[in-house]
Computed example of a mutant assay.
Amino acid sequence: MNLYLIRHGESEGNRLGKIQGWHNFPLSDLGKRQALQLGDFFKHIHLDHIYSSDLTRAYDTAIAIGSYKDQTVHKWEKVREVNLGPLQGLTRKEIYEQFPQAKEKSILTSGLEGTESVEELTKRCAYIVDQLKRAHHKDDVAIVSHGGFISIFLMYLMLGENWGEVHRPFQIGNTSVTHIEWTESWKPLFHYVNRDHHLTTEAIASQKMGLL
């Protein structure tokens, strides 16, 4: 199986510097342009199935791919962003002011009450892998998801249940593509991570400046 993990285009939450989690922000104008560039990138890449987080910023990005491929996009709530509970909708500055303990850990795995736990995220990752194995072991599949969850899923693929004990090094930019291949042994091969060469100079410059 070939799996393409894709982060959504820039959202209004990204543009405003807000931590989004499960909050449902739409794509920004730049994000809509990025989604079209992403769709064009996939025009000549074979896909059997396209899945997306059910949050608007991801689904609308996936629709852009589907329109170039003339394929249906299937919503899959299991590939949503991490549920960040009380941190959602706040800027990093606001989070650190209101929840100083979040400085000690990653915002994604802070352990604060109301946020998704490492154990819950591990179960979610395991479920996704199991479902992909059962349904798509010989397919080419695209999943449009979110930066935080993609980075965690990559850690899970490498380290299994111990992923939360190790520093997470991945940067996942807007509409970046990560290509993973599984052979019959189901040992993942990482072809590339965070590829965004399909974006315009404007979009790449914004990402490097931390605006996305």
Rank of each mutant, 00 (worst) to 15 (best):
L211H: 13
L112G: 08
I45E: 09
G210V: 06
P169A: 14
S53G: 00
I65P: 00
Q37Y: 04
T183M: 01
E97V: 06
K103M: 11
E161I: 13
Q98I: 07
M209R: 11
I6Y: 10
K69R: 14
G114Q: 13
S176P: 12
G160Q: 01
Y96L: 07
G147H: 07
C125I: 04
A35Y: 06
I95T: 10
S110Y: 05
R195C: 10
L132R: 09
L30N: 14
H74L: 11
T200V: 07
L30P: 14
N162T: 11
S52P: 11
Y51E: 07
Q171Y: 13
H44T: 10
L132C: 03
Y68H: 14
K133P: 02
D140L: 02
H23M: 07
T115C: 08
D196A: 13
P26A: 01
H23I: 08
E94V: 06
D140E: 06
S185E: 07
L3W: 03
A142L: 01
L84D: 03
L16S: 10
Q131W: 03
Q101C: 07
Q98Y: 07
L87V: 10
E184I: 11
A62S: 05
D130P: 01
L27R: 07
L212F: 15
D40T: 02
I6T: 11
V193N: 09
K187I: 02
S206D: 12
I143L: 05
S145A: 12
H136K: 01
K93C: 02
F153Q: 03
D140F: 00
A126Q: 10
L108C: 00
V177G: 11
W76R: 01
N83R: 13
